[in-house]
Amino acid sequence: MKRDVVVLLTKAPYGRVHVPEGLRAARGVAAGFDQHDVTVVFTGDGAYAARASVDREALNMPGHVADLREQGGEMVVDAAAMAERDVSPGEIADDVTVRSGDEVSTLVRDADCTLDF
């Protein structure tokens, strides 16, 4: 049965594995037999990981991101978290969509399941 799954990435990118492991989980959920609808949300300090200047190779992200997108998964960043951290929309990577704080909380509230990393 197809579900609506939101994966929250809440930790800053460097020095820990939460971002790549969250993306690995997201791609796994998207690729599974049921092919759930997956949205990855960069929120909290995770907003730093949505920036274009992040070294994705160092974070082992490219493979996970490519598979996620191949399965129709989406990546969004929380504008409210960006504002709190002075991250501007112009800094965000091209494959990440900026969504308002209200849109993100509605996304989370309406999801069938949320995973946080």
């Binding site: 929250l8 809440t10 909290g44 978290a81 993100v104 909380s105 509230r109 946080d116």
Partner: peptide, 14 residues
């Protein structure tokens, strides 16, 4: 506490 911001924001709309 660590996820209070998005948690309270999500609850506020419900």
């Amino acid at each position: 506490e660590p996820m209070a911001d998005i948690g309270l924001r999500t609850a506020a709309g419900d």
